[in-house]
Amino acid sequence: MRRINFARIAVNVVLAAALPLAAGAQQMESHIGNLTGHSDAGRQLYFRYCWGCHGPHGNGMGENEPWVTPQPRNFVAAVFKCRSTPTGTLPLDSDLFNTLKRGFNFTNMPSWAALTDQNRADLVAFIKTFSPRWKSEKPGDPIQIPPEPTLTIGSIKHGQELFQKLECWKCHGQEGRGDGPSASTLTDSNDQPIRPYDFTSDNRSKCGRTNQDLYKIFMTGVDGTPMPSFADVVKPEDAWDLVHFLRTLQYNNPSPELTMWEGTPEGKAIVAAKRVKQTYTGSGVKP
C-alpha cells in the first residue's frame, strides 16, 4: 500500500511553478523526418499535459504516481519500451514520437494523437533534456528488418516450432493467452507486477499493430520489462516465421495468417478449440 505523500505533492507544486523558468539551461532538438522539435516549446506542453504523472523532474514521480500502475516512465533513467534500436540503447526520436501518438495499451498512458505532429516532436525534444545519456550516447543503430517473405503454411508451422523452442509459452502461455507458468511471477524494473501480452485479447500490443512492429518487439525486447531481446539468437527469416505464427494466436483479429491457418485441418481444430465460449457455470458451449 502506498500512502499519499502530501509533502511530495507540495514540493512538486512549488517546483512545477519554478522549473519552467529554471530549466532553461539545457536545449535539445528532435528530428523526425522533416520535422524538427525544440525543447523550449516542448517544455510548455510538458508542464501542461505530462508532468502530472511523469513529474517536474521527469523521474516518473508526479503527483498522480501513487495511483498509476505500471508506474509512469522515468525519463531520467532513459529506459524505453518501444524502440527500433537494440536492447540497452537509446531509442530513435521517431520511436518516442510514435509512442506519444500511440499511447500504451493496458496502462494509464493515453494516445496523444490529438496533439499536432509539431507538438509531439517538441515534446520528444524536451523529454531528452532529463537524462544526461542523450548528451553522452547516440541512439543505437536500428535493427535491420528484411522484407517480409511470402506467407506460407510452412512459415506458420516453423513459427509454431520456434514458439516452443524459444519457450515463448513460459510467459505467454501455450495458447498465447498470457498465462504461462512464469506469468504470475513477472515484475518490471520497478519491481511492480506486470502481465505478459495476451495474444487472444482484441487489444493491439503495446508497441504497435503491424507485422513489422511485432518483428521489432521480440528482436529489440521491451526494455524495463521481462521481455528480452532475441536479436542475437533468432535469424531474420526465422523471425518472420514467428511473426506469422503469432498472428494466428490472435484468433479474434482477422488476418491473412489466421485465414491461411484455419484453412488447414490442424489450424482449424486449434482455432475452433480456442473459440469455445465459457458459460458462467463453466460448461463449454461451441459456437
Binding site: 524459444l166 524494473s189 525486447g221 526494455d223 532475441f230 542475437d232 539468437v233
Partner: peptide
C-alpha cells in the same frame, strides 16, 4: 549502467 535484457536459448 545501461539496462538490457537478452534471451539465451
Amino acid at each position: 549502467n545501461r539496462e538490457w535484457n537478452k534471451s539465451q536459448p
